[in-house]
């Protein structure tokens, strides 16, 4: 297939995944910030949301303070934010349009329909309820788009590149949550600071839609090191780093097999996957959770560029 087509498929998926991630951050943060301050609800959650969204640097250039309304606007619609949900949907749709023929009509319908729906929010002053509906709409988009891809695409390189986009983006998103929140995810050996942090942990789980999953996996009350374990190592959890890399490696191998040629991207993915398979959460804490996450984010970015050099340009 054309390199440009593969590139667009990959980025369409990345942008849709990113839009959903932003929606989840907003949803979880709204819930946390509504709690009384004695339970951890605090205005500072909004700046944390901005950082988790990866906008820690550009947000202050446009807003003096991070409030519920400024952050909602910035992350959902602001033209000043290249990764706003609206921009994600617009870029995804524009990429999709350029390679319309490589998508199934269901996938195109999902994106084009969302893009048309987006216009309804243009220039409107949104209430809290409106934002709530908007968040639901974005989550529904990613479910429909992803589901359409899964249910309707031929299992060929087009599908594999589109899946790669989902998982490379998702790995980045989960790692970013860990990067911003690592300081509340203390190891078992540290004394935990009381109930305040409890709501931080549940917020993290909500951001990756794993609150219920946590209980099914660990069958105990929420412990910060287990939250970290779930997000990093648990292969049953579809947003964990390990699960993302299992998929990245699988789809890269599928591409490599069908082209009868392996390359640096396959090797890099396999290396990261084996690191995730062979380490334990206690080792990570011994070496520093923050260092681990920083390295992971850098490696994941490098994998992204390698995939691009190997196939997309």
């Amino acid at each position: 297939m054309l390199s440009r087509t593969a590139d667009s498929l990959y980025w369409v998926s990345r942008y849709v995944e990113r839009a959903e991630y932003l929606a989840r951050i907003l949803e979880a943060t709204t819930r946390l910030s509504n709690l009384p301050s004695s339970y951890g609800g605090a205005a500072s959650e909004w700046i944390s949301a901005v950082k988790t969204a990866g906008c820690g640097e550009i947000f202050p250039q446009h807003h003096d303070s991070a409030t519920e309304s400024s952050v909602h606007h910035f992350l959902c619609f602001s033209p000043d934010n290249p990764s706003s949900i609206r921009n994600c949907i617009e870029v995804a749709r524009s990429n999709a349009r350029a390679v319309r023929t490589a998508l199934t009509s269901e996938m195109w319908d999902a994106l084009n329909g969302a893009w048309l729906e987006l216009k309804k929010y243009d220039g409107k002053k949104l209430t809290r309820d409106d934002y709530g509906r908007f968040i639901e709409f974005v989550k529904a988009l990613s479910l429909t788009f992803d589901g359409s891809a899964y249910r309707t695409m031929l299992r060929s390189d087009a599908y594999w590149f589109s899946r790669l986009g989902v998982y490379v983006e998702r790995a980045d998103n989960t790692a970013r949550i860990l990067d911003v929140k690592y300081h509340v995810l203390l190891p078992e050996t540290e004394k935990v600071g009381g109930s305040l942090d409890y709501f931080q942990w549940t917020t993290i789980l909500r951001e990756v839609s794993a609150l219920t999953a946590y209980h099914w996996v660990y069958r105990e009350s929420i412990k910060p090191w287990l939250v970290a374990d779930l997000l990093i190592f648990n292969r049953q959890m579809p947003r964990s780093l390990a699960s993302c890399y299992e998929n990245i490696s699988r789809f890269l191998d599928a591409i490599g097999d069908s082209y009868s040629r392996q390359g640096p991207a396959q090797r890099m993915a396999r290396k990261t996957l084996s690191t995730l398979a062979n380490r334990k959460i206690t080792d990570i804490y011994d070496h520093g959770l923050h260092e681990f996450i920083t390295d992971f984010i850098n490696d994941n970015n490098r994998l992204g560029s390698t995939i691009s050099e190997q196939y997309l340009i």
Binding site: M1, L2, S3, R4, A98, V99, R100, T101
Partner: peptide, 13 residues
């Protein structure tokens, strides 16, 4: 391009 089953290319492709 879709109906014919041929690649839709741009100049840079």
């Amino acid at each position: 391009a879709d109906k014919l089953g041929i690649e839709l290319v741009e100049g840079t492709d």
